[in-house]
Design a protein around this nucleic acid. Structure first.
Lengths: 121, 121
DNA sequence: CCGAGTCGTTTACATCTGTAATCGATGTAT
DNA sequence: ATACATCGATTACAGATGTAAACGACTCGG
């Protein structure tokens, strides 16, 4: 269950989190932009299934794939890891970094502001 | 120059960012907690030197190691990658995730608040 | 001089990751 | 029936990563 998901695998999960269940074909079709071959996508699906990140349902001679893990949970875990590793667990420096490089739009800042206001009460 | 730095390598860099220059021995000594052997640390130092992440100065028969890359720059890059990958580039959901899991102390929130105030003007 | 320690370097090796080709079974169109 | 398309499974293979042992050169205490 708590195996790590690699970057390529993450892109496959994204597709399935957006829509499911899907066949390997469907998933590959939605990953056009990556330039990956069909077999590559199948390999990634197999690895994800093997580590319990998605479920398979037989549909005739093929499988229908669907996520078995919650996106938010994984995202939270990865965030935590990064913040721990890079900033000793303190998130402010991370935000500061993004801000410094002009990565924050006014909308992002407004969103953060609202979030902080909410956290404070 | 822009090679990625792995997690184990990151720990070595941390030591050198904190203090430098240091010998392999010194670095290993400061990595006691990892349980790594001296040769493991030496391998990591070599790999980091090979990818230009640190500089070596000869000191008799051994090297003195020092960082050749800026911690903040690397941290910013890694942050950006993660935020892009997990949250479509928007940092607020990341902060929200950390908040949800109670990962934010009141001090963290205050720090973020101050930062936002600063960003706004 | 000699053995013990210390250096960086070379080699090792399992696992993970990215990226597939190939294979055997099966379904399908002719 | 036969050729072709398609499925998942098996195998491949190079590069990154974690973790180190072995090696040859050198130095230092006796």
């Amino acid at each position: 269950m708590s195996e790590r998901i690699s970057e390529a695998e993450w892109q496959v999960m994204e597709v399935l989190w957006t829509q499911h269940p899907l066949t390997a074909q469907d998933v590959a079709a939605r990953l056009q932009t990556t330039g990956w071959g069909l077999t590559t996508v199948k390999t990634l699906l197999s690895r994800l299934a093997a580590k319990g990140a998605l479920t398979t349902t037989e549909d005739g001679r093929r499988y229908l794939y669907a996520p078995a893990v919650d996106r938010a949970a994984i995202a939270a875990g990865e965030s935590r890891r990064l913040v721990d590793r890079l900033f000793g667990g303190r998130p402010a420096p991370l935000v500061a970094h993004l801000a410094e490089r002009g990565e924050l739009s006014p909308a992002d800042i407004a969103e953060l502001e609202a979030l902080i206001r909410e956290l404070k009460q």
